[in-house]
Amino acid sequence: MPETSVDQRPCARGERCAARTITTLNGQRVAVPALTYRTYCDPCRDHVGAILAGLPALYVRVHGELGHHSGGGERVTVSRTPPVPLSLGVDALLREVVTVLASWEERVRTVARLAVLDTQASRRRPDGQALDAACRLLAAHLDALLALRPEPMLRVRTIPEAAKLPPGTPGVVREVAGYAEVILDLSGADAGAEILRLHARCAALLTETRAPAKHLPVPCDWCSYAELYEVLTWDGRPDGARCRECGYEYSDNEYTLLRGRVYAEELARAEAQPRRRRLAAAEYGALSGRTPACSAVVPDDERMSA
């Protein structure tokens, strides 16, 4: 039976969909995600795949910040001679990246009927090696990953985050440690969201050591405020813009189109300005009986067209 538009559904990334369109609804600009027959549209699917390919290298860079980056957490010393200061925030993020990706690897191995990892051997692998293996397998079976049905999975949340979960969510709260272990029903859409979120957190941590985001000379197309700031990839390449007034995020292509349109409008206004001055001077001369030097040459056809 052929597929029809009825079988399509909005991309799981919602307003952040890479192929979103902008429309006006009840006087408000609304971002509409692309329709797709799968969980993610093709551009968003490819984006998740690209993130998986680059995540091991990003992990290495974040690991390099472990000894000298605050990372939002307390520093501790694991030995007396020599002292090795560790950032608890960075360490927790690194562990979460490996744990989450390894859990999705296990699920994909099951649905793809691949060899199941030996639990003990898997736990003995260095974290970097485990992450690299998980990313390579998930990238090779990306469609299987993003098509996963909801199943219970163990996740760690801070206590405030756990308090916002629906009542009855199974789990255990570790009061002293300050976190909760919860069981959530997660699907392929959640897999993509978790991968993108972890990547963003790693990139944000590395961004803290860079210069502040550059203020862009283009007003936001949503709120009209001149509060657009550049967004960079983890390796420093331009990746769009974000408005600090309304929070709308532009993809790199969207910002390029916006900038081109704004510059074209400014150029058109600049070219029209001298002509308007000449016409105004000519009208003044006609009313006063004088002919100012700036209006010495004003063709009749130009005056009529104005």
Rank of each mutant, 00 (worst) to 15 (best):
D235C: 07
G168M: 13
E254V: 09
A272L: 04
E175R: 15
D239Q: 12
A204L: 07
P219Y: 02
G247D: 07
R210H: 11
R210S: 13
A180R: 03
A189V: 06
T207D: 09
R174Q: 14
G240K: 01
Y248A: 04
C202K: 01
V172D: 14
W234L: 03
E266A: 15
R174K: 14
L216G: 00
R259K: 15
A270Q: 11
G168S: 12
G192Q: 05
Y248G: 00
P217C: 04
G168E: 13
A203K: 02
C246T: 05
Y263D: 12
E208H: 05
A226E: 08
E249D: 10
C246M: 08
V173T: 14
D252Y: 03
E265Y: 10
T233N: 06
C246R: 06
D185N: 15
A241Y: 00
R259E: 15
R261H: 12
A226F: 09
A177D: 15
I195M: 02
P166E: 14
Y255R: 02
W234R: 02
A189E: 02
T169F: 10
A193D: 07
L186S: 05
S187A: 12
E266Y: 13
G247A: 09
P170G: 09
L205S: 06
A272M: 04
T209H: 07
A241S: 01
L184M: 11
Y225P: 00
I183L: 15
D185G: 12
A200F: 02
A272C: 04
Y263P: 00
E181A: 09
L232I: 13
E194L: 14
G240Q: 01
S187T: 07
P166M: 11
E271M: 13
W222L: 03
L216C: 00
V173Y: 09
L232K: 06
L184Y: 03
R242F: 05
N253V: 15
S251A: 12
D235T: 09
A270L: 11
L205E: 13
R210L: 13
R269F: 04
P212W: 00
V231T: 08
A191T: 14
Y179P: 01
A200S: 07
A226M: 07
A272W: 01
V176P: 05
P167G: 07
L184K: 03
A180C: 06
L267E: 14
S224W: 12
L196K: 03
A189W: 01
G178V: 06
C223R: 03
D239K: 08
L184G: 05
E230C: 04
E254N: 09
R269D: 08
L205V: 10
A268W: 06
H199T: 02
G171W: 09
V176I: 14
T209R: 08
T256E: 12
C202W: 02
P212K: 00
V262H: 14
L232V: 15
E254K: 10
H215W: 13
G260Q: 15
P219N: 01
E230N: 03
L258N: 02
L216M: 03
R269Y: 04
S187Y: 03
